[in-house]
């Protein structure tokens, strides 16, 4: 199971990088979203892939990773999703402004401040 998710994370990450490197701004946004999802998955599975085990203890049996999932990655991934949500919302607004101001979505034309 872990191997499958590792490959999935890798594919998402590669897709994200590919998107960021494209010339069109919309694809950059798609790339950022893919990257964000791949990292969220990575964080989520940092506690190991546990299927069908909730991160809740009943208070009687001693906590162990054979009966329950690690709750912390779940909390982390929630925070990461929230932050990613904010970032992506902001990025979409920003890129929209850039587009309406510069009248282009071609990142190759954004080189005037470079030199």
């Amino acid at each position: 199971m872990e191997a499958f998710y590792a490959i999935l994370i890798g594919i998402l990450f590669a897709g994200g990088i590919y998107g960021i490197l494209r010339r069109s701004m919309v694809r950059v946004i798609v790339g950022i979203i893919l990257l964000s999802q791949s990292i969220n998955l990575l964080v989520f599975f940092s506690g190991g892939a546990n299927r069908g085990k909730p991160a809740i203890m009943d208070g009687e049996t001693a906590p162990s990773f054979s009966t329950m999932a690690d709750p912390l990655p779940q909390a982390l991934v929630l925070t990461a999703i929230v932050i990613g949500f904010g970032l992506i919302a902001f990025v979409i607004v920003l890129f929209q402004r850039v587009f309406s101001r510069l009248q282009t979505d071609d990142t190759q034309e954004l080189f005037k401040t470079d030199s």
């Binding site: 990257l35 964000s36 920003l94 402004r97 101001r101 510069l102 005037k112």
Partner: peptide
């Protein structure tokens, strides 16, 4: 204009580094 252009690069690379 220049700030939006600069902002685009700044935002993209910094988000990447955060990830």
């Amino acid at each position: 204009r220049s700030q939006l252009e600069a902002g685009f690069k700044y935002v993209t690379i910094n988000i990447f580094s955060s990830f």
